[in-house]
Design a protein around this nucleic acid. Structure first.
Lengths: 264, 264
DNA sequence: TTCCCATCTGTGAGTTGTCTGAGAAGTTGT
DNA sequence: ACAACTTCTCAGACAACTCACAGATGGGAA
């Protein structure tokens, strides 16, 4: 989506207005919510993921091991699967194969431990699947799942890969970010932060919320990384231009289309 | 609801005027009041919170530790939970996980101690959850709870994020305040005070009430901060325009739409 | 009208929240 | 193994905010 010169300033483009604060329509043809099966034995993480995905509009079913996972696949007929390849009972690869046999065309998001050998995984993802390595950021996992679904050509899923706020655009597929048509390079963390902000335009997000979504769930560092990265983003996004990233002292940050007249 | 781009400056949104004094309908589909479970071992605070929430229309159940909290979750089936992560018996994170498993889709408002050096806050909350750190203002906790519910898509809960009194609007999501369409910047305390007034339009609120609701429950200062902040608000809200904030000598303050005819 | 007292508001000190530069530690690519 | 890049901690500077104090203002009862 190129919003060149013309409407750039006075008339914000707003091609695909993000609905309800960025949350997307995850609905099947029959109107029921999309289903996702989460298979992992780390219960705390599963609970966290399940809650997050439900909030995002999914219908979630969880299984703590391979056997239950496969059984759930049969019964629950999910539209997507999140699968840890390291399972307590069965070999994750076996489970993956079985899943594929059972659920045709259903994309799988594979969870791997950090130290896992990447090339084994590489083969897996060839089939349209994707993987994230633990510990991951919730925002990233959710985004990957959405991306999988979008790319797997699931009909009925009207998800756009493009987020647009004012003259700022972010493409979740190509990871390209532009402001006023000019491409901007962001690091991985900066990108994740901006995506979270843009998925919640005009809403104040507290530093704690941002930390929880954008940083890995096991992050134990200082809360002021958020301030730091906001500062980085501003240099790249707002530099010189009318600011889009705003601080609400004591509350958090928010992003919104730059308004010509800023009132005190 | 969705007033994209357009409305920016000149044209105030004025969506759905808030009904009966800003207090919202907290009802389930079957007509019974919404339920909230409060889990904290500080009994004085729990009593205060419980009383406040009951006044707001909730059906409240309290538990002083993790075990009872979980039991209550099973029996009481609350629609929302307020949970201190620092509990005397169980680890708050465990309790949180268990709650999520037991009560799917139920948002949790997490209470954290201010002095707990921000540690282990990360990765705590999922999609629909939120935090408040002690000591908090009751008005804020209540607002957060309402916000959680609204955003977690609970059907039947008809809460708007926008408060409207006359030509004055306050958006709880973006923290934006406008009068006659012009954006007005407020500090955190001013915002909280105005929110309280606007949630109770045309009703006289005593300085004591205001102090109890808007300032942290442990506030020990002079009661005339309220006068001071009313003064600040007037400068920003009423400046020049027909006044909306009125003093009832010996009784308190109230806010109402500025009408040409001023009746006592 | 006068006086008393509630309320209003200017001033300024102390506190808190946020921003950002410098650099250490870790990662990736060649 | 080196260079380039990224992530993150730390700490100082600065700005915004909160609140106490005290004198000014004004309402209303006698």
């Amino acid at each position: 989506m190129f919003t060149e010169g013309l409407e750039g300033e006075f008339m914000p483009p707003i091609p695909t207005p993000v609905p309800g604060g960025g949350r997307t329509e995850l609905l099947r043809p029959d109107g029921s919510p999309l289903r996702v099966l989460v298979v992992d034995d780390e219960t705390a993480l599963v609970d966290l993921l399940a809650m997050t995905l439900r909030y995002e509009g999914w219908e979630v079913r969880a299984a703590a091991n391979g056997v239950n996972g496969l059984r759930a696949a049969k019964e629950f007929r999910p539209d997507a699967v999140v699968l840890n390849i390291r399972l307590p009972d069965l070999d994750g690869l076996e489970v993956l194969s079985a899943m594929r046999r059972e659920l045709r065309d259903v994309p799988v998001l594979v969870l791997t431990a950090k130290d896992a050998v990447e090339d084994r995984i590489a083969g897996l993802t060839a089939g349209g699947d994707d993987y994230v390595s633990k510990p991951f950021a919730l925002e990233e996992a959710v985004a990957r799942l959405r991306g999988l679904l979008r790319r797997s050509g699931m009909a009925a899923v009207r998800t756009e890969s493009m987020l647009v706020v004012g003259d700022l655009t972010l493409d979740e597929d190509s990871h390209e970010v532009t402001r006023q048509g000019r491409s901007i390079h962001l690091t991985a963390t900066e990108f994740e932060l901006l995506r979270y902000l843009m998925r919640n335009p005009r809403r104040v997000l507290s530093k704690a919320q941002i930390l929880d979504r954008v940083w890995s769930y096991d992050f134990g560092g200082q809360a002021n990384v958020v301030e730091l990265y906001i500062s980085y983003l501003r240099k790249k996004i707002d530099a010189g231009r009318p600011p889009m990233i705003h601080t609400r002292r004591g509350a958090g940050y928010l992003i919104k289309p730059a308004e010509p007249a800023e009132a005190a």
